[in-house]
Amino acid sequence: FSITQFVRNLGLEHLMDIFEREQITLRVLVEMGHKELKEIGINAYGHREKLIKGVERLI
């Protein structure tokens, strides 16, 4: 299971460039909250919320 699959499953594949540029893996994403996601350029609250909720389902 990769970050690419995870992001695609959430319908947020347009954010993949950010994850690749910042070298974010699923392991790193698990540790990130709204503040960190915003810092790397994910400005939409809804997108950040989707990512965080998606990660919570993985754990």
Rank of each mutant, 00 (worst) to 15 (best):
F1Q: 14
F1E: 11
F1Y: 11
S2H: 10
S2I: 08
S2W: 07
T4S: 13
T4W: 10
T4L: 15
Q5E: 15
Q5L: 10
Q5P: 03
F6Y: 04
F6L: 09
F6S: 00
F6T: 01
V7D: 00
R8E: 09
R8L: 10
N9K: 12
N9Y: 14
N9T: 13
L10E: 03
L10I: 08
L10N: 03
L10H: 02
L10S: 02
G11T: 03
G11A: 05
L12V: 03
E13G: 12
E13P: 09
E13R: 05
E13K: 07
E13M: 10
H14W: 08
H14A: 12
H14I: 12
L15K: 00
M16C: 08
D17A: 14
D17W: 14
I18F: 06
I18D: 02
I18V: 08
F19Y: 01
F19D: 00
F19M: 06
F19C: 03
F19L: 07
F19K: 00
E20Q: 11
E20G: 06
E20R: 12
R21Y: 06
R21N: 08
E22G: 07
E22N: 15
E22M: 07
Q23M: 11
Q23I: 05
I24Q: 06
L26Q: 02
L26K: 01
L26P: 04
V28D: 14
V28P: 02
L29K: 01
V30S: 14
E31S: 15
E31C: 14
E31G: 15
E31L: 12
E31I: 10
M32T: 01
M32N: 02
M32K: 02
M32R: 02
M32W: 07
G33N: 07
G33Y: 03
G33I: 04
G33P: 01
H34W: 04
H34R: 03
H34D: 05
H34T: 02
H34L: 06
K35W: 06
K35F: 07
K35Y: 07
E36I: 05
E36H: 05
L37R: 02
L37A: 01
L37Q: 01
K38G: 05
K38W: 07
K38V: 08
K38F: 09
K38E: 13
K38N: 07
E39M: 12
E39L: 11
E39D: 13
I40Q: 01
I40H: 04
I40T: 02
I40P: 00
G41R: 03
I42F: 04
I42K: 04
I42A: 04
I42C: 05
N43K: 14
N43Q: 12
A44I: 12
A44V: 10
A44M: 08
Y45H: 14
Y45I: 11
Y45A: 15
Y45Q: 11
G46W: 13
G46S: 14
G46T: 13
G46F: 12
H47K: 08
H47V: 15
H47R: 03
R48N: 02
E49F: 07
E49D: 09
E49V: 14
E49T: 08
K50W: 07
K50A: 15
K50F: 06
K50V: 09
L51R: 00
L51C: 05
I52T: 02
I52H: 01
K53S: 08
K53Y: 06
K53Q: 11
G54C: 08
G54I: 04
G54E: 08
V55C: 14
V55D: 01
E56P: 03
E56T: 09
R57E: 13
R57D: 12
L58M: 12
L58D: 03
L58I: 08
I59M: 13
I59T: 12
